[in-house]
């Protein structure tokens, strides 16, 4: 099980943030290559591991940068009220010292209230692994099958 352990002096003000890459889905990449079309370059951003979030979510900018189209629409409830979010199917890649974690799944496209992150890792991904928050050592560990 690949895992990543990160130490962060800013874990108290910022929370557990990791750098990831977003890519088009494997099936879309295969489709584009078959048609001799350009496969979009991965987009590298910082995301927050958020156990208060049920589904992985990204800033609206990510699917725009990848140039991908939605596969659904969902109703979301936030502190600001009810709204609609487009749903995209993508890959998220995390490079760890002992392997690459690739998660392919649905991501809600949302408006994030924080400027220094572009996405949230939610419980839909976390249910497939382990997440440890080691506050007294300012570290966290994420491991996924």
């Amino acid at each position: 099980m690949p895992s990543i352990t990160l130490s962060s002096p800013n874990i108290l003000p910022e929370g557990p943030i990791i750098e990831v890459q977003f890519l088009v889905s494997a099936s879309l990449e295969a489709n584009l290559r078959q048609q001799n079309k350009q496969v979009p370059n991965p987009v590298t951003v910082r995301v927050l591991i958020d156990t208060g979030c049920g589904i992985c979510s990204v800033s609206e900018e990510i699917p725009k940068q990848l140039g991908i189209e939605p596969i659904g629409v969902t109703t979301i409830f936030t502190a600001a009220g009810e709204g609609q979010a487009s749903v995209y199917f993508m890959r998220m890649r995390i490079t760890t010292p002992n392997g690459i974690i690739t998660w392919e799944g649905k991501f809600n496209s949302v408006i994030l209230t924080r400027q220094n992150i572009s996405g949230l890792i939610g419980r839909d991904l976390l249910q497939h692994g382990n997440f440890l928050y080691l506050g007294n050592s300012s570290q966290f560990v994420l491991s996924l099958l």
């Binding site: 589904i55 979510s57 979301i76 992150i117 949230l120």
Partner: peptide
């Protein structure tokens, strides 16, 4: 239909 709730205040709408 399924809905999603964001508890942490990190997501806003519209």
């Amino acid at each position: 239909d399924e809905t999603q709730t964001y508890w942490s205040g990190l997501v806003t709408i519209g």
